[in-house]
Deep mutational scan, measured.
Amino acid sequence: LDITFHVDGKNIHVHGASEEVVRIIEELIKNNARAEEIKETLERLLR
């Protein structure tokens, strides 16, 4: 699975993920999660 995301100002662009995963990533970023935390969360979800 190949998910890429980047933050452009306040806009979060996520590619290669389901809508549910996109929402989770957006929440994590809004809550100022570190990249490592986001990665760990995604790995748990995608197991």
Rank of each mutant, 00 (worst) to 15 (best):
I29F: 04
N11L: 14
H13N: 04
D2T: 06
L28E: 01
T4C: 10
L45D: 02
N31A: 13
G9K: 00
D8V: 01
L42H: 00
T4D: 15
E27Y: 07
K39T: 14
V22M: 05
A17V: 15
E27L: 11
R47I: 15
K39Y: 15
N11T: 14
E26A: 08
V7E: 08
G16D: 08
F5V: 15
N31V: 10
E20T: 09
D2E: 10
K10Q: 15
N32T: 06
V7A: 03
L28S: 03
H15R: 09
L46Y: 03
D2A: 02
K10S: 13
V14D: 00
R23K: 12
H13P: 03
G16E: 05
H6G: 05
N32Y: 05
L46N: 07
G16Q: 08
E40Y: 05
A17K: 01
L45Y: 05
A17M: 04
R23H: 10
L42M: 07
F5K: 06
E40F: 04
E26D: 11
I24P: 00
L45E: 07
H6N: 14
N32V: 05
D8K: 01
E26K: 14
F5M: 13
A33C: 05
V21C: 04
V7Y: 04
L1M: 14
R34A: 13
I3M: 10
E20R: 07
I12F: 14
I38F: 08
A35M: 15
I38W: 04
E37W: 06
F5T: 06
R44N: 13
E19W: 10
R34Y: 07
E36S: 10
R44I: 10
V21P: 00
D2C: 08
E26W: 10
A17P: 03
S18M: 04
H13F: 08
L46K: 05
A33G: 09
E43W: 02
F5C: 05
E40I: 13
D2F: 03
V7S: 03
T4I: 15
A35R: 03
A33Y: 06
G9R: 00
T41I: 14
A33S: 11
D8M: 02
I29G: 01
R23N: 09
D8Q: 05
K39H: 12
I24R: 10
T41S: 11
E40L: 12
E19V: 13
H15I: 11
A35W: 15
A33R: 09
A33W: 05
A35S: 12
I25H: 00
G16T: 03
A33T: 10
E19P: 13
E43R: 10
T4W: 13
K30A: 12
R34S: 13
E43T: 11
S18C: 02
H15D: 03
V7P: 08
V22R: 06
A35G: 10
E40M: 11
E27P: 00
I3K: 06
T41D: 04
H13S: 06
L46Q: 09
K10Y: 11
E19Q: 12
T41H: 10
V21A: 08
V22I: 14
R34L: 08
H15T: 10
G16A: 07
D2S: 04
R34G: 13
S18A: 06
I38R: 01
E37Y: 11
K30M: 12
I12N: 00
E36K: 10
G9D: 07
D8F: 02
H15N: 06
